[in-house]
Design a protein around this nucleic acid. Structure first.
Length: 178
DNA sequence: CCCTGATTCGC
DNA sequence: GCGAATCAGG
């Protein structure tokens, strides 16, 4: 991909907004986060300041040998993003409760005797998804509140444990649910 | 492990 | 100029 004026503008904008390099790379598309960071440096854009200023001194500069790059290396679309998760950490603070009123979705579940708790969802956008975030869509794609579940999904599964059951229902269980 | 930005240097 | 590889750190 080429750094057109438009793409550079978008890069500047997003970087100024404080998005991470990988987020920006995801939005621009066709570039890796390294490309974004490299470009940021070349543009002499202000990097992310470290409080204090000491900036982790002492840098080994370089290992030594030249880059043993395979040359048959397939560049990937680079779709990565970080996901902040509650993780059950006990933070009594009420500072992170911006507005989560619309966060619980009602999905068809109960039917059987077991009590099933509908998990909350991270409200991730398309560009926020990772290999291990649940990709279960929630809401109307035409609506502006459309988002993805985004919770942790085991191993390489596209869904979290909860949505996995909805996505793939054993025929027997599906019968019972009807 | 996941991620972050920073740097080097072959291309 | 570009960005993968590598690093250091959270």
């Amino acid at each position: 991909m080429n750094w057109t004026d438009e793409r550079v503008e978008k890069l500047k904008k997003l970087w100024a907004e404080g998005l991470s390099a990988s987020q920006i790379a995801a939005q621009l598309g066709g570039v890796s986060r390294n490309a974004v960071i490299g470009k940021v440096h070349r543009l002499n854009l202000p990097g992310r300041a470290k409080a204090g200023g000491t900036q982790t001194a002492s840098r080994p500069k370089r290992p030594a040998a030249a880059t043993p790059r395979p040359s048959n290396f397939a560049a990937r679309p680079a779709v990565t993003r970080t996901v902040a998760r509650p993780a059950g950490s006990a933070l009594p603070k009420e500072e992170l409760d911006t507005d989560f009123e619309t966060q619980s979705e009602q999905l068809p579940v109960p039917a059987n005797g077991n009590k099933v708790v509908v998990p909350m969802s991270r409200r991730l956008e398309l560009t926020e998804l990772t290999e291990r975030t649940c990709k279960w869509p929630i809401g109307d794609p035409l609506n502006d509140d459309f988002h993805f579940c985004g919770n942790e999904s085991p191993d390489n599964s596209p869904y979290c444990t909860y949505h996995q059951r909805l996505a793939y229902q054993p025929s027997a269980e599906r019968r019972r649910m009807r």
